[in-house]
């Protein structure tokens, strides 16, 4: 599935200072199997919905999560990472819009 902020958005790189060691856009070619728009969601819905989406998917499938605030864009990847899933990238595509790409474990 492709979105307006999909895999090839050129501006979607490295425009924040600290990414905790994660290189943005290393895995840009990954196509998402599912996309979930959580731009207007706040916690705990951002985490709950991301977790539920991942539960519905099969191992190896890619989920793209669109988030609208920095807390969620920081907490959601950390939580799904600790759940054992692989966070492929966290990109800020525009102010207040982050795209988190996760491969289901």
């Amino acid at each position: 599935m492709t979105t307006a902020f999909g895999a090839n958005a050129p501006e979607a790189v490295n425009n924040r200072e600290n990414w905790g060691g994660i290189r943005m856009s290393d895995q840009k070619e990954q196509k998402a199997d599912r996309t979930v728009d959580l731009l207007s969601e706040v916690c705990p819905y951002t985490f709950v919905k991301s977790k539920l989406e991942l539960e519905q998917m099969e191992t190896g499938q890619i989920l793209q999560i669109h988030l609208g605030n920095s807390e969620s864009a920081s907490n959601v990847p950390r939580s799904v990472d600790l759940e054992g899933h692989e966070v492929l990238s966290v990109d800020q595509t525009e102010p207040s819009h982050w795209v988190v790409t996760v491969r289901r474990a």
């Binding site: 924040r16 600290n18 990414w19 905790g20 060691g21 994660i22 920095s70 864009a73 920081s74 990847p77 950390r78 990472d81 966070v87 966290v90």
Partner: peptide
């Protein structure tokens, strides 16, 4: 553990 995926 090291805090990953940090923003801010």
């Amino acid at each position: 553990p090291k805090q990953r995926f940090l923003i801010g």
